[in-house]
Design a protein around this nucleic acid. Structure first.
Lengths: 234, 234
DNA sequence: ATTATCTATAGATCTATAGATAATGC
DNA sequence: ATTATCTATAGATCTATAGATAATGC
C-alpha cells in the first residue's frame, strides 16, 4: 500500500540516461513534431523530471536535433550488399524490387523502432528546412541510386533498354518518389488510397513493374528476369 | 507625428472580416501547422486583436479546420474539361501530361494563393488524421483518376497496351505518387533532388513518359501520340 | 567527492474571455 | 440599437533554471 512512497529513483549513468531520453523522445517528436511536443510529455515518456532533460540537452530544440542525428546513425543501410552487385539488368530489378518490398512490406528495419517514425521525421523536415530529409535520403539512398543508374546504363548496352533517355539520373529519383509517397500516405490512420489490389505481394510486383517499364525496360527483359522469388536473393 | 494616434479602427462586416482572417491565417498554418502557429501570429497577420478572432472562431483549432474547408472549396478542379474527354490513348496522355505539367510548373492555380500552401496543408494532414488529405485528394483527383482508368482500358482495346494488368485502379495512384512526391520535395528551401535535367519542359516530358511507359503503353503509341505541344490542348 | 536526480518555481507565452468603446445603420 | 472592435487580463501551460537531495564510487 505504501509501496509508492518507497520507490526510490533509479539512477543510471549520464550517457545511458541521455540515450534513453533520446529513444523515448523519438516517437513523440515523430508524432507531433517540434512544436507539437512539450517538455512535460518528453519527461513523462522518459520517466524523469523535466529538469533532468535539461541536464542533458540545452533546449528542447537541441534534443530534437540530436534525435535527427541519432536517426542518421541508426538508419540501417544496405550499401555493402548493393556495392557487390554487378551492373546488369537483373540487378537493376533486384535493386528496385528490394526497395519496393522493404517499404511496402513495412519491414521493421530496426528491432525496436517503428519505420514510420523515420518517415514522419523526414516529412516534418520537409515542412521545416529540409536539412534532415536531405541527409537522411542521401545516407540511405545515394548508393542505391548510383547503382540503379549504373545498371540502367548496363541494361541499355545489353539491349534490354532500347529507348533513348535524356538522363539516367532521373530514374532512381522517380522510383523513390513512388515508394516514398506510398509510405507518406500510410502515415495517418485514414486509408487514403485504394490500389484495388489486396495481396501485398501482388502490389509489390505492380509497383516494381511500373517502375521498370517506366525506365524503358523491354518486355523481353522483364519476362527473362522478373521473377519475384529470385529478386530478393542477394 | 501624432498620426498613429489618429488611426481609427477600420470596420468591415463580420462576414468579410471572417474571410479575411481565414485568408491571412492560411499561409501561417501552412507554414507552421496547428501547433506551430500562435493566436498572436494569427491576429498580427490579420491586423486585428486576438479577441476578434475569437468572435469569429470558437478556438484556434476550429479556425484551422475552417481553413481546411475553405481550401476544399477553393481548390479549382478541372473536372468539366476531363469529363468531356473520350476514352482513348491520346486523352490518357493528355490527362497525365496535364497533371505533371501543372504541378511541376508550379502554375498558380489560384490568383492569390501559393500552390505550395495547399501541399503543405495536405502534408500536415498526413501527419495528423489524414481527413483533410483524403477530402482534398478526392476532390481534386477522383474524376481525373477515373478518366485515366477509363482511358487505360480503352488504350488496351485499341492495342496501345498489350501487357496484362492485375488492376487498372493502381495506375492513376502511381502517377499521382510521382507528381505529389515531386511537390512535397519542393516544400523546403533545401534542394533535395537533382534530376540531372535543367530544362523544366524536358523534365515534364520525362515524368510523363515514365508514367506512360510504366502503365504499359507501347512505344508505337508513344511515337504516335506523345507530342507535348499538342497534349495541353483541350 | 561526484554524479544523478528531484522539487519548486521564475518568467514567458499562449489560449480564451469579460467588459468597455466606438463605428455603423436604421 | 446593433455590430465590430479593442484593452486588459485570467488562468493555464510551457520552457528553462536554481538549488536541494540522495545515490554512487572512490
Amino acid at each position: 500500500m505504501m509501496e509508492a512512497l518507497m520507490i526510490r529513483k533509479k539512477r543510471i549513468s549520464g550517457e545511458a540516461r541521455k540515450v534513453q531520453i533520446l529513444r523515448s523522445a523519438l516517437p513523440l517528436f515523430a508524432k507531433g513534431g517540434l512544436s507539437g511536443t512539450t517538455t512535460r510529455e518528453l519527461s513523462n515518456a522518459a520517466g524523469v523530471s523535466e529538469a533532468l532533460i535539461y541536464k542533458h540537452f540545452p533546449s528542447k530544440e537541441s534534443l530534437y536535433e540530436e534525435i535527427q542525428v541519432f536517426c542518421l546513425n541508426k538508419a540501417r543501410v544496405n550499401n555493402d550488399i548493393l556495392l557487390g552487385l554487378d551492373a546488369n539488368t537483373e540487378n537493376l530489378m533486384k535493386c528496385i524490387y528490394f526497395a519496393v518490398y522493404t517499404v511496402l512490406n513495412q519491414e521493421m528495419v530496426q528491432e525496436d523502432m517503428d519505420d514510420s517514425d523515420f518517415h514522419r521525421l523526414v516529412v516534418y523536415s520537409l515542412l521545416e528546412d529540409g536539412e534532415f530529409a536531405f541527409s537522411f535520403l542521401n545516407k540511405t539512398c545515394q548508393i542505391w541510386r548510383e547503382k540503379i543508374e549504373e545498371c540502367t546504363i548496363a541494361a541499355r548496352e545489353l539491349g534490354d533498354i532500347t529507348i533513348s533517355h535524356k538522363s539516367t539520373t532521373i530514374f532512381p529519383w522517380l522510383v523513390q518518389h513512388l515508394i516514398n509517397c506510398y509510405a507518406y500516405k500510410q502515415l495517418s490512420e485514414k486509408q487514403l488510397v485504394d490500389y484495388g489490389i489486396s495481396d501485398m505481394m501482388v502490389l509489390i510486383d505492380e509497383f516494381s513493374l511500373f517502375a521498370l517499364r517506366g525506365m524503358g525496360i523491354n518486355e523481353a527483359a522483364i519476362d527473362r528476369y522478373f521473377h519475384p522469388e529470385k529478386l530478393l536473393e542477394f
